[in-house]
Amino acid sequence: MTGEFQGTTPSVMTPGGAMGQPIVEIDNLALTYPGGVSALQGCSLAVQPGEFIILLGPSGCGKSTLLQILSGLLRPTAGEVRVAGRVNPPPGKDRGFVFQHAGLLPWFDVYTNIEIGLRAKGLSKREAREISERQIRLMGLDGFGTKFPHQLSGGMQQRVGVARAFAIDPPILLMDEPFGALDAQTRVLLQEEMIRLWEGSGKTVIFVTHSIEEAIFLGDRIFVMTSRPGRIREVVDVNLPRPRSEKTRYTPEYLALDAKLWAMIRGDAERAIGGGTPGSGGAVE
């Protein structure tokens, strides 16, 4: 354990307000791709155990890159991440990963897809099947265990992706715009399911999205990122009570946060589509 907390990262308060030992720390991280594109630069943050953290930013701001570094798929070019004290750890069973497009293997049925991480944990075929069976029930996928991904809707595919991550029961969940490719209704339903699964689980979630609504509805704290090269620009606390439900979306606090965050990232979003010259502000409203 590297112990000392440097204080170079944004304030580290748990939802309960107590200062604790962060489970994930990112310290002055930089990643430059071989082609010379700088995805991240001077990116720092700290996450307390059990927090639901949102990384919010415009497309191409490096938030997915950051998640890949946390997962161990990518190594940073400078700086480091510490997961439970381990520096730049390789992929491991302490972190579950949910991919944007579910990332199911099309030649395996639902059972086998959910069991991908379980077999790596050294479980027997039978033990793995028991766990995947339970996950299937939890995700409302009863009867679909022997179906192949192409036989499922997009929403069901992503439920399998989430089930695969929960199956290894990791303390940390890394989620890379998991609902971004779904239609609006399915997306809302899966967000509510996510809340239901997570609340009371004690798991730490780091959730990447570019949707402000999703960020506020799900998160404890929102780390707003700058456009590329990405770093943390601001940390916004979401003080909405839990358990959250559909009603949460209509509270004044929710709407106020929505407006605040949109004001914050609007400029970046405009630049991303190539519009929004200074002075033309508000033209879209």
Binding site: S71, L73, P91, I116, G117, A120, K121, R164
Partner: peptide, 16 residues
Amino acid sequence: PLHIQVMRVYGRGTWD
């Protein structure tokens, strides 16, 4: 490459 990432992130080696 996504399918390879899936295997890697869930701790599977080159043989798998």
